[in-house]
Design a protein around this nucleic acid. Structure first.
Lengths: 221, 221
DNA sequence: TGCTCACTCGACACCGTGTCGAATAATTTC
DNA sequence: GAAATTATTCGACACGGTGTCGAGTGAGCA
């Protein structure tokens, strides 16, 4: 069962990171093509409804060639996750200390960013969330991401509590942060399932913002 | 693709409801055995990791006999869901109007009940939640259940708002109820994944209760 | 030119699904 | 209680998807 970290077989050249400007080998191109096809297909079907030959015929190669590039469908999803993870971390940075603006604004902005990201990459994010229960690899990856969110949120809550602005515990800053973050995730998940509607998006953002504000700072007065 | 409502083939005698004392036909017994085996296997594996022959060998029959009793693995899950649905509705009743006790108590009691139910039937409930994205049948069923929860919660919030006890909207009572209910579900889901720990359970109940209280009534003072 | 190694392919063995028709057990009908 | 009917079970089969293997192919480099 080992660990299969790499989407490419052992001995393959190091992946060309996003920054690298090295010449794209042919293999990189087809890997990309597989990834693109996968992301497109995920808009319609769930990961385990997608057969390997759908991926490969979309990329113009034969089915068995797939296994040269990825060791499983889940590995594809993992690679796809990494693609959007960066955007996610940017979004996480927004939780961090605001300037002098009121908390309401920074919370709303952060939540807005998350919703937008789910709108842009809903299918991949949904597949990744589902795969948490299936694939150990994906699970580790996303629990790392979630942790970043929870940590910075908890830290922020603690700061506000010490400043006497936020409602003191219990619950622990960390426990509170955990439920708030996963509440956001759940709502984004189901929102990304519905047809895009700016009005609905706004309503969800406002509702989540209100719950965050009241849970952390108490009722505004 | 039709609709396949019944776990038993068309023309089968009406299911013996829980109240009925009619003689158990042999078929009912094996259906039960399949259901029991399924519930037990779900403690270890996810629904689509369970092969039909695991179900049938557990019930002491041959694989093809399975299809006489259920039309698919999902139909099994649907039947399993109905089993626990009743308990769920009891839990839903707790959201309804308390007597004169403080809101904190009735909310905590309701959340406690939900957590207990997830502790008792976690594997089935998790599988059902996952299958919402896969099976139209399961999706309809559970959105009905969720609706009951959301409706009664929203109604309760409206009552409290009119009485001037709860923080007025926006957000809508319904929007607020939606996020609170799904927050509970998400937390119960992940809680039921961890090893049973009374301390952890209590912490989650307390955290959820606090968020509900603050979201609906504002900060206690 | 010829070597090497990344890359591709078709063929194969395997496994799980769902269906069918025949065989058997239970129940009803006369 | 024998015959007819219906409920239940089974083995066999066709199908479709997976993952592996060894044999190519071709582009770049010595």
């Amino acid at each position: 069962m080992m660990f299969g970290m790499s989407p490419r077989p052992a001995g393959a050249p190091p992946a060309n990171g996003a920054g690298s400007r090295r010449k794209r080998s042919k293999g990189d191109l087809t890997s990309q093509a597989i990834l693109d096809t996968a992301e497109q297909l995920l808009e319609t079907k769930s990961l385990d409804e997608i057969a390997v030959d759908e991926l490969t015929s979309g990329a113009g190669i034969s089915r068995s060639t797939f296994y040269f590039h990825f060791e499983s469908r889940e590995a594809v999803l993992y690679a796809l996750s990494e693609r959007v993870a960066e955007g996610l971390y940017d979004s996480a940075a927004l939780w961090l200390r605001r300037g002098s603006e009121p908390p309401e604004d920074s919370i709303r902005r952060a939540i807005s960013g998350t919703v937008a990201l789910w709108r842009a990459h809903g299918p991949v994010l949904r597949a990744a969330v589902r795969a948490r229960d299936t694939s150990e690899l994906v699970r580790r990856f996303w629990s790392g991401v979630a942790r970043k969110f929870v940590d910075s949120t908890a830290q922020q809550i603690d700061i506000e509590r010490e400043a006497g602005v936020a409602v003191p515990g219990p619950p622990t800053a960390r426990a509170l942060a955990t439920v708030l973050v996963s509440m956001n995730e759940t709502m984004c998940y189901s929102l990304s399932l519905a047809r895009k509607s700016a009005a609905r998006d706004r309503e969800v953002v406002e509702t989540l913002t209100a719950v965050w504000l009241r849970a952390v700072y108490g009722v505004p007065r």
